[in-house]
Computed example of a mutant assay.
Amino acid sequence: MKTKLFILMLFLALSLSVSAQEKTKKELKQERELEKQKEVQSLLDTKNFVFEAQKVTPQGGRLIQLDYNTYFLKFNTENTTCDLPFFGRGYNVGYNSDGGIKFEGKPENIKIENKKKSTILKATVRGKNDVYDLFFTIFFNGTATLNVNSNNRAPIYYDGLISAPKEEKK
């Protein structure tokens, strides 16, 4: 009888010590979220990231899901490149324009404001034919919204993700 009791106690002690060492799903989720938050914060600190648009909402319009991940804005303090679709009203757009928001230029007046659960990044970029005001709201889970205001077009809003830029092969 004592032997059975001893074996049972030994089994219980081993099972409790093994289960105490394993992390719960909640702890693992918190670790992943913290890791993602650090990654996003490092992208904001370097001011070098890529915004990939997934949804677009034109002014006075409804939400449009974008196919593929081909629409982007590469933000860098030296050179910002944008290729985003545009749905909405154009005020003074040339006839040779392909309709999208496409520009390349150096961002000016970069301002970053940290909030409790997000970061606001504002910048102005002078393109070839227009001036674009960019207003990012970047959340710590990697999602972001981008508001683009320009002189020649109605405001437009994009939802998407930010990530680190991919290394270019030389």
Rank of each mutant, 00 (worst) to 15 (best):
S17W: 15
F139D: 04
M1A: 01
V56Q: 00
F6I: 14
L12A: 14
A53E: 04
F72H: 07
N48G: 08
L134A: 01
L5S: 07
E33N: 05
N69Q: 05
Q65L: 14
F72G: 01
S97F: 15
L44F: 00
K128N: 14
K36Q: 04
K29H: 04
K25S: 11
E27G: 01
G88S: 09
N147L: 14
F51C: 11
K25C: 13
V50Y: 04
E35P: 03
T81L: 15
I7N: 10
L146H: 12
Y157V: 08
G127M: 06
D98E: 11
K26L: 15
Q59T: 14
Q21C: 14
D45A: 15
S118Q: 10
I110L: 02
F6M: 10
R32T: 04
F51S: 10
Q59A: 13
F87Q: 07
L16S: 14
F140W: 07
N96I: 11
Q65F: 12
K166W: 03
L146P: 11
V93L: 08
E113L: 05
N92A: 09
A123C: 01
V131F: 02
T24A: 12
E52I: 08
N96H: 11
G90A: 09
N141A: 06
S118V: 04
M9C: 14
N76P: 03
Q30S: 11
C82W: 12
V18D: 15
M9Q: 12
F140A: 02
T24V: 10
A53W: 04
Q21K: 15
L121F: 06
R32I: 04
G60N: 07
A144V: 10
Y95K: 13
L66V: 01
T57P: 01
L63T: 13
Y71D: 03
D159T: 12
Q21G: 07
K122R: 10
V131H: 00
P165K: 05
V40W: 06
G61Q: 08
E35I: 05
D83C: 13
S15L: 13
I101D: 05
I120F: 08
G88T: 06
K122G: 03
K38I: 07
D98F: 08
L43S: 07
L161R: 05
E108D: 02
D67Y: 07
L8S: 09
Q65T: 13
E167P: 00
S42Q: 12
L161G: 04
K111D: 02
K74D: 09
N109F: 09
F72V: 06
I120M: 05
L66W: 03
E52R: 05
S150E: 00
T145R: 10
T124Q: 01
E104Y: 09
I138F: 03
T77W: 02
S118Y: 09
K23G: 02
T77K: 01
I112D: 00
